[in-house]
């Protein structure tokens, strides 16, 4: 049911939704970390880093990633260049 309309309005097929939703939920199940706890962890990390170097909080990406059956916390934190800092 709905295959034609799904295609017409460009919405996702159900298998794709299933996989994406499972990917998220399994990471949280495996780490026993709720999305709210992860947000709190991110905030603490940002605060700690900001005490030492200047960063743009909006550009920071911190999340859980899967590698086989292992999970890792991956942080991508762009650092502002000294020149830009002076200019700003």
């Amino acid at each position: 049911m709905g295959g034609f309309f799904d295609r017409m309005f460009g919405s996702k097929r159900s298998a794709e939704s299933a996989k994406e939703r499972l990917q998220l939920v399994l990471v949280h199940d495996r780490t026993d970390l709720t999305p709210a706890q992860l947000e709190a962890l991110k905030d603490d990390l940002l605060k700690a880093i900001s005490r030492h170097i200047e960063i743009d909080p909006a550009a920071v990406q911190i999340g859980l990633e899967r590698d086989g059956r292992e999970q890792r916390l991956v942080a991508d934190i762009p650092l502002r260049s000294v020149a830009r800092r002076r200019a700003g």
């Binding site: 295959g3 097929r13 159900s14 298998a15 794709e16 299933a18 996989k19 499972l22 990917q23 399994l26 899967r66 086989g68 059956r69």
Partner: peptide, 19 residues
């Protein structure tokens, strides 16, 4: 159903469970 993308494929399930 896998063919019509309305069921997780064997590859999807293996990728998720990684065993």
């Amino acid at each position: 159903m896998v063919k019509s993308h309305d069921m997780l494929s064997a590859a999807d399930v293996l990728d998720l469970l990684a065993i």
